[in-house]
Design a protein around this nucleic acid. Structure first.
Length: 693
DNA sequence: TGCATGACTTAGTAAGGAGGAT
DNA sequence: ATCCTCCTTACTAAGTCATGCA
């Protein structure tokens, strides 16, 4: 590998041209992308053996696809329009009917069966008839809907000035703030107990943005944040939230009803003749930006979003939502190539925020299903791909070697792709392609193992990834090569980025990207673990423990962490004392049983026999209870710092879990709560016990 | 081709609320 | 009835990846 000598040239872009003038980017300033070298090394990779099947979904349960063209308006017309009345936009009065009547009359089409899960529940109106979108034809690529109508977003309530008696002090003296300045001050006051408010950057950013909201007098008086006393305001808010908790049932009920009304009015839309739940119909209220980890922008003011910031997306022929009186929307558009209903640009990063549908909706579910189908397709290719990257470790080209080692990490360790990030704009976190030399340590030998790589870096959400992994010798040697003549802050894979990697993956399999490996490895791990851990003789709680353990294996693989709950130790102790109490109870019950037996032996009458029987049952019951508690304790202890939810929700093919439940007679409710069941309704409906990922 | 932007998924935290224990 | 705990839900930040434009 003759080119490795210049591998120390950096690929970071010239930071001079980026907008921040502070010194924060000094460190990487000298990095340039070596374009010429890249070009020279453009190479044709022999991938024909891996070339993809064109059929999008290979397996039998693949969603059907149709392939016709959209009409002039960009709307897709179903070839079987007449036989599919459901896909035709409804007339206004019909829509109204749907919006108002949550029991929307059952469509005449194929939805004859009531899903299993629904039978068990008392027939509640919402649950009665679920639309099985997964039994319908899908739209051609790109078209997301044909009809979309909604009521627009719900804005944050306007600011309510503090009562006169709540004071703000500056330098020990009472000071009355202008409404605007006061509002921003309350944001800080509400966070006073939070660690954020002690952080230098947070305080600096907050103060800078706060001053922008002040009147000129305020600005000239308030020059030092440390002299500001928000404690009285903070106490007021605490009292308020306390009072909220103490409210009477009636008052609470009233609030609940109001929320329900809001949800009913704004929480749903009509998309292609079906009423669908919206995920986040409320606009984010103003406040202070809470970036995660060491975020350079934490504490900045997140401004209030007005109707004039809002872009509405809906059908041309729908009832277009009205802006609040006296206001206008920024824009109303009719783009059926996207799934969002409302968008606005946020002022911290300048990125766009969206209002989209709930995970239970067709549009999200279809995509989710498709995601798992892609991962399943990878299963067929993965051996070839693995062989290929092993070969590539020997390549003459630096770029190919780096790509191959990175892919190995992504595959083996389920690392994220690692896009480049704009420096100084976000917390310094990395993924695979953006790993720097400082993030790994090479140990030719460690704890009796050869060729160990020690990873230590901050990943998404500034969650630390720490792992010591034995790797193959060739990988190790390559890493040594990649690190030669580099500074700690240089890129490990200086000839690689996610775009190059994904292009390569695309050549290996249609639709393959870096994240597919995470999905694939997560799901396949769950399946294997379930096979391995489930003991057919176990009772249900023990089987569920096995499930959780399998789930946990995945969460560990994906590095899904959580802060150990603050009350963890305490609740663990509580549980332990419960177990102890149960043990004593069991001992007592056993003693009682013994004496009852003795008694029965002497008396030999019916009554004492019955007593023995009931004592026996009691012992059994208590044993079971004890067992349950012990299982619970184990489960909780093992779960201390691991978050299971993320993998369950985003990485594990739900059909694996559904099949497992069916196979072992576990009620699905034990694995998925209500929300999760709604999200995975498609999987619950279609997976049989013999489902193989 | 490279970069910015847009769209959409994945992520952890904290408030809220249901349900069990006292 | 009240308290406490834990689960659920809401919230929104932070990723990934494709696309379109200079």
């Amino acid at each position: 590998c003759s080119e490795h000598k210049d591998s120390s040239e950096k690929k970071h872009k010239d930071k001079e041209k980026t907008k921040h003038k502070d010194g924060s980017s000094e460190k990487h300033k000298d990095k340039h992308k070596d374009k010429d070298k890249e070009k020279r090394k453009e190479e044709k990779v022999e991938t024909s053996s891996l070339k993809v099947e064109l059929c999008f979904f290979a397996c039998f349960c693949s969603p059907p696809r149709i392939k016709d063209e959209p009409d002039d308006d960009g709307f897709y017309a179903s070839p079987k329009e007449d036989s599919k009345p459901l896909k035709r936009p409804r007339e206004d009065d019909e829509i109204l009917f749907i919006l108002q009547d949550s029991k929307a009359k059952k469509v005449k089409s194929k939805d004859k069966k009531v899903p299993e899960a629904d039978k068990r529940k008392k027939p509640k109106k919402e649950e009665e008839q679920k639309w099985k979108w997964w039994e319908e034809e899908r739209y051609p690529e790109g078209i997301k809907w044909k009809f979309l109508e909604h009521k627009g977003p719900v804005f944050a309530p306007p600011y309510e000035p503090l009562p006169e008696n709540v004071k703000f002090y500056y330098d020990g003296k009472v000071m009355k703030l202008s409404t605007k300045a006061e509002e921003v001050a309350t944001f800080f006051a509400k966070m006073l107990d939070h660690e954020y408010t002690t952080k230098e950057i947070f305080r600096k950013n907050f103060f800078k943005d706060w001053r922008k909201e002040m009147t000129s007098e305020e600005k000239s008086t308030i020059t030092n944040l440390s002299k500001c006393d928000f404690t009285h305001m903070s106490q007021y808010f605490k009292a308020q939230s306390e009072a909220r908790k103490q409210m009477s049932k009636e008052e609470k009920q009233k609030i609940k009803e109001e929320n329900e009304r809001l949800l009913k009015e704004y929480g749903y839309c009509v998309m292609d003749n079906h009423k669908e739940r919206i995920a986040n119909f409320k606009i984010e209220p103003p406040g202070l930006f809470r970036g995660r980890g060491n975020h350079p922008k934490m504490g900045m003011l997140k401004r209030r979003i007005m109707p004039e910031d809002i872009i509405i997306n809906c059908s041309k022929d729908s009832k277009i939502p009205a802006p609040p009186p006296g206001h206008k929307w920024k824009e109303v558009r009719h783009d059926n190539k996207v799934t969002w209903l409302v968008s606005w640009t946020e002022n911290i990063q300048g990125s766009i925020k969206y209002i989209m549908l709930n995970p239970s909706s067709r549009i999200k579910g279809e995509k989710d299903w498709q995601k798992y189908e892609t991962a399943r397709r990878l299963k067929k290719f993965v051996d070839k791909i693995r062989n290929q990257y092993r070969e590539d470790w020997k390549s003459k080209e630096m770029k190919v070697r780096q790509r191959a080692v990175a892919l190995y990490f992504i595959d083996k360790l389920a690392l994220r792709a690692g896009n480049e990030k704009e420096e100084g704009e976000t917390a310094d976190t990395v993924g695979c392609c953006s790993l720097r030399v400082e993030h790994i340590k090479l140990h030719p030998e460690l704890d009796g193992q050869e060729y160990v790589v020690e990873f230590d870096f901050l990943g998404k959400d500034s969650i630390r990834y720490y792992n010591k992994v034995p790797v193959e010798k060739r990988v190790f040697k390559n890493l040594q090569l990649f690190m030669e003549n580099k500074q700690p802050e240089d890129d490990l894979f200086d000839r690689l980025n996610t775009s190059i990697l994904n292009k390569h993956l695309q050549d290996l399999m249609e639709g393959l990207t870096a994240k597919v490996f995470r999905t694939y490895n997560a799901s396949i791990t769950l399946q294997q673990q379930l096979k391995e851990l489930t003991n057919p003789d176990d009772n249900i709680p023990a089987k569920i423990l096995s499930y959780n353990r399998a789930n946990r294996a995945v969460a560990i693989l994906c590095n899904h962490q959580r802060a150990p709950p603050k009350t963890f130790e305490k609740s663990m102790m509580n549980l332990q004392s419960k177990i102890d109490a149960k043990k004593e109870q069991l001992a007592d019950a056993r003693r009682e049983l013994k004496s009852a037996k003795a008694d029965a032996k002497v008396r030999r009458d019916e009554k004492s026999k019955k007593t023995v029987e009931s004592k026996k049952k009691a012992v059994q019951r208590i044993e079971e209870q004890l067992m349950k508690l012990e299982v619970q304790a184990t489960d909780r202890e093992e779960n201390k710092q691991i978050a299971l939810g993320t993998s369950k929700l985003n990485y594990l093919d739900p059909r694996i879990s559904v099949a497992w439940c069916k196979k072992w007679g576990i009620p699905i409710e034990k694995i998925y709560n209500k929300t999760q069941r709604e999200k995975f309704a498609w999987a619950i409906d279609m997976a049989e016990e013999d489902y193989e990922f």
